[in-house]
Amino acid sequence: MSAEPTGPAPAADGATRMPPIVTPDAVAFWAAADREEFIGQQCGDCGRFTFPPRPMCPHCHSLKREDVRLSGRGTVVSYTIPRHPHPFGFKTTPIVAVIELEEGTRLVSNVVGIAPEAVKMDMAVEVTFEPTMKDHKVPVFRPRSAP
C-alpha cells in the first residue's frame, strides 16, 4: 500500500489525481502504466485473461502469469458522474466508467475528452494516460471511432 488518502501536496507538474494503490500482485500493471503501456495478465498455460491481477489463474491454477500488451480498445458498459461529493483530486467532474476490453476483462477507469453529459452506454473507447500525484500515471479512455 503506497497511497495516502488525502495528504500529499500536488506533484510539481500540478497533477492532483490520487496515485494508484499498488499491491504486490499489481506492480507490473502500474509500472507499465507509468511508461504509458497498457498491459493485462494472460495465463501462460491456458491463455485466458484476468483482471484484477492475481498470482494464480482461476481456470487452470497455473502460476505462469504473463504480462502482455492489450489493444487498449473497449466499450463503456457502465458509467456515472460523481456530483457529490466532488471526488478528491479532480479539477473538474470526471466520468467514471466500467470499460469492457476487447480481451474480455473489465476495469474501472475514466472517459476523458468529452463533457460528462456526452458519455453513452456502449460507447467505443481507447486507452490513453493521465498523470497522478507522486509521478504515476493511470490508464483512462477517450472516445474512438467504432471499428
Binding site: 497511497a3 457502465s78 461529493p85 474501472v108
Partner: peptide
C-alpha cells in the same frame, strides 16, 4: 472490500459511486 482500490484513482471514492456503477447497467 480490497478490490475497491481499483476504483479510487478514477474518482469512484464513495459507496454511492460504486453503487451507481453497479446499478447503472441494470437501470439502462
Amino acid at each position: 472490500t480490497g478490490s475497491l482500490l481499483w476504483c479510487i484513482p478514477f474518482g469512484a471514492m464513495t459507496p454511492a459511486s460504486w453503487g451507481a456503477l453497479q446499478g447503472a447497467r441494470y437501470l439502462h
